[in-house]
């Protein structure tokens, strides 16, 4: 299994997003760096629209992630409800 990751700017917009990801992906690991927060996971990582909406109390469009996104690793598949990164090997 290879590691996938996603990194965001550290700010108030991303705090609930990061919380959601950590809650939805048991085993994912948080790596905090200057001004940047990175989440590593083995094989795959799923970001769920619903989980973020629960935390922020409003509708959320997963494309809003792009505003604070820094980098990703893995193949991406995005639809209305989920944003998934994975290595398929």
């Amino acid at each position: 299994m290879s590691t996938v990751f996603i990194a965001f700017q550290t700010n108030e917009d991303t705090r609930p997003i990061v919380e959601s990801i950590l809650a939805d992906n048991p085993g994912s690991v948080l790596d905090e760096q200057p001004a940047m927060v990175k989440i590593n996971a083995e094989g795959s990582l799923v970001i769920k629209r619903e989980s973020i909406e629960e935390r922020i109390g409003r509708d959320f469009d997963l494309q809003e992630l792009q505003i604070n996104l820094i980098t990703i690793s893995g193949h991406l598949d995005e639809d209305d409800d989920t944003f998934t990164l994975s290595w398929k090997n």
Partner: peptide, 26 residues
């Protein structure tokens, strides 16, 4: 580079860097 800029108090570079970087993922 951008983490380095943040670490060294360079708010200007961090900001353009992250703004650019948000495109880089795409």
């Amino acid at each position: 580079f951008m983490s380095g800029a943040a670490y060294n108090g360079d708010m200007a570079t961090v900001t353009f860097g992250f703004s650019a970087q948000s495109d880089e993922a795409r």
